[in-house]
């Protein structure tokens, strides 16, 4: 139904950075689907292209970077039609002018984003209120005063104490957690269909992190929006996501629901990733010979190189000789909703 239908479909997205030293294939053939009202988690080591994927979606890839190919299909709801049958139209964001009117009318309105650093997401010399109302008056036909009302209401919903006063505060008068709440309020005040959260809690302490995660889940229920949650923290993924995409070097290597991911991961990289998180059982198992924490062997190769075959093969413990280093594996659907990009699972 509508709740389950696709909101954004990313098809074979490729975003490259052309630098003097060489070309960085930050996103290299990514396929993803974000469903309405659902949460897609993206996890992977830092530098694997998570942020660039998100920025590509908003067409905010910084300068030497360019979308080289692929589609970003956005299924918009057209509200003007009769309320009973909401129509959708499809628009390929990858084809839009990055700073054109149409893209800008989507940004901050239907798709909005919360960034990693709450400390520097707000400019210190303007009040929190003016930075929030700005986005409201930009996308909605409301007066300054109404925008202020909306902003205060949204600040109350993200449970900022004294929301009205906070409107007139400057960012440096708020704590880190408060600031991130304000930033979330700023992203939500146009009731977006999709919220992209790029490691929104990485810079916060654990207690604050838990509060923010709770808050986001709650707001998702309330507003019915989809969330694309980006993190390198598997624990957070377990808490937030329904579907999870594991990324490695600009590619999605495994895509499945969160339960399967933790119970029966298939891709060697995913398994290595899971072994690298500390667990309570490890603490119990202390004293046995088993190493408590495993790190993934080898280094992430330098970003300019183009590896033949599977990009994970230099580090893969299960690589198939004479195949993995020559032929790139295709994506195989091992179960409904569970696909892996690895030779081990490719059907002959």
């Amino acid at each position: 139904m509508l709740g389950n239908s696709a909101l954004v479909e990313i098809k074979n997205l490729r975003t490259y950075f052309h630098l003097p030293e060489g070309t960085v294939r930050a996103v290299d053939g990514v396929d993803l689907t974000i469903r309405r009202g659902r949460t897609l988690g993206i996890v992977g080591e830092s530098g694997c292209g998570k942020s660039v994927t998100a920025l590509s979606l908003l067409r905010l890839v910084p300068s030497p970077g360019r979308i080289e190919g692929g589609e970003i299909l956005f299924y918009r709801t057209v509200e003007e039609a009769s309320a009973s049958s909401a129509l959708t139209d499809v628009i390929d964001l990858a084809r839009l002018e990055p700073n054109g009117r149409e893209m800008r009318s989507i940004r901050g309105n239907q798709i909005s984003m919360v960034f990693q650093e709450p400390m520097s997401a707000l400019i210190p010399v303007r009040t929190v209120g003016s930075q929030i109302t700005e986005v409201i008056t930009l996308h909605q036909k409301v007066s300054e005063a109404e925008a202020r009302e909306i902003a205060a209401d949204m600040l109350a919903r993200v449970r900022l104490p004294k929301p009205r006063q906070a409107l007139d505060d400057y960012p440096f008068q708020l704590s880190g957690g408060m600031r991130q709440r304000a930033v979330i309020a700023m992203a939500l005040c146009c009731r977006p269909k999709l919220l992209i959260a790029d490691e929104p809690t990485t810079a916060l302490d654990v207690t604050t992190e838990a509060q923010i995660l709770d808050l986001m889940r709650e707001l998702q229920k309330e507003f019915g929006m989809a969330i694309m949650y980006i993190t390198h923290n598997l624990g957070v993924i377990a808490e937030m996501a329904e579907t999870v995409a594991v990324m490695y070097l600009g590619k999605v290597v495994e895509l499945t629901d969160v339960k399967t991911l933790f119970m029966s991961p298939l891709h060697p990289y995913t398994r290595a990733l899971l072994r690298s998180i500390p667990q309570l059982t490890d603490a119990v198992a202390r004293g046995t010979k088993k190493p408590r924490l495993q790190t993934i062997e080898g280094m992430v190769p330098d970003p300019y190189s183009v590896l033949p075959g599977c990009t994970f093969h230099p580090r893969c413990p299960e690589r198939l000789p004479d195949l993995c280093d020559r032929v790139e594996p295709g994506v195989s659907e091992v179960a409904p909703g569970h696909s892996v990009k690895c030779h081990l699972y490719s059907s002959p």
């Binding site: 905010l60 707000l122 930009l138």
Partner: peptide, 15 residues
Amino acid sequence: RKQYVLVARAKGLSE
């Protein structure tokens, strides 16, 4: 280079 510039762009403001 500051992040709030990116945030501002993500709001949909014109350049």
